[in-house]
Design a protein around this nucleic acid. Structure first.
Lengths: 127, 127
DNA sequence: GCTTGACTTGAAGCGCACTCGAAGTTTTAG
DNA sequence: CTAAAACTTCGAGTGCGCTTCAAGTCAAGC
């Protein structure tokens, strides 16, 4: 049962993910794709649904400041097969903690900014 | 009534703020300090309480990804005096919106990561 | 079947925010 | 007074994550 789902050009994937075609190629050559991207008749990339889904998740990791190198580590584990599931789980759990720390810091800084804003609001209102 | 409060060496400020002495000098030469830093007898910097408080707030702006250039803009407004209070308020309000966007994106990505974690948890548990 | 726009690779370049190095000066502890 | 530790300036270097360039090759519409 071969996968008959639609394939996407690099431009379509860029459109769907908000990345540029440059960045998509950069990610691929940096070893961040889980699977090799198919090539149409010759050289042009054809992304599968699975590839696109992975790119989407990848952008979630990146937008939470996971470094490229760590994404790569995750990918390398994934390519080793199911045996590394616990390792990938652990990697994600560790990353989750870092995301919580980022949230906490952001909220802490927001409070400081809000405080400053309240001072300015008074000042400006009474002027 | 001259300010008689304690002064701090650059190393002490580094200690208190978590920045390096390099970064503190870099911020100063980049025009990010509100006031000129005093110099002890000759050349060594002596930070006042006010200077340290500003550095602390500055790190809050930076930790919410305000670019150096925008911090500088804020500082330049501040140096023009009270007349620019509304401008600084507006700058902070705009930045506040960006912080909310950052929080939202972080939370969105966290949800995606949590979802993936739950898939892995099942997989690993049933192995 | 030809043109036009999309795609290809590989290497170099860029922007940001530090970070480090060198060489010299100043402070402080003993 | 001296020696070690801390400080100074200024310019160059670093790391990350793209981004752009050059010089093509390919594919889709007319």
């Amino acid at each position: 049962m071969p996968t008959l789902s639609k394939r996407f050009s690099i431009a379509e994937v860029a459109e769907r993910t908000g990345l540029t075609t440059h960045t998509l190629r950069y990610y691929e050559t940096s070893g961040l794709m889980l699977h090799e991207i198919e090539r149409a008749s010759s050289t042009h990339r054809r992304y599968s649904e699975r590839d696109v889904s992975w790119v989407v998740f990848l952008t979630r990791l990146r937008s939470t400041s996971m470094p490229i190198a760590q994404v790569k580590q995750y990918v390398e584990l994934a390519r080793e097969g199911d045996i590394t599931s616990p390792d990938r789980l652990e990697l994600l759990l560790r990353h989750r903690i870092s995301v919580f720390a980022q949230l906490a810091e952001l909220q802490h800084s927001l409070a400081a900014i809000d405080h400053k804003i309240s001072l300015y609001s008074e000042k400006v209102a009474s002027a």
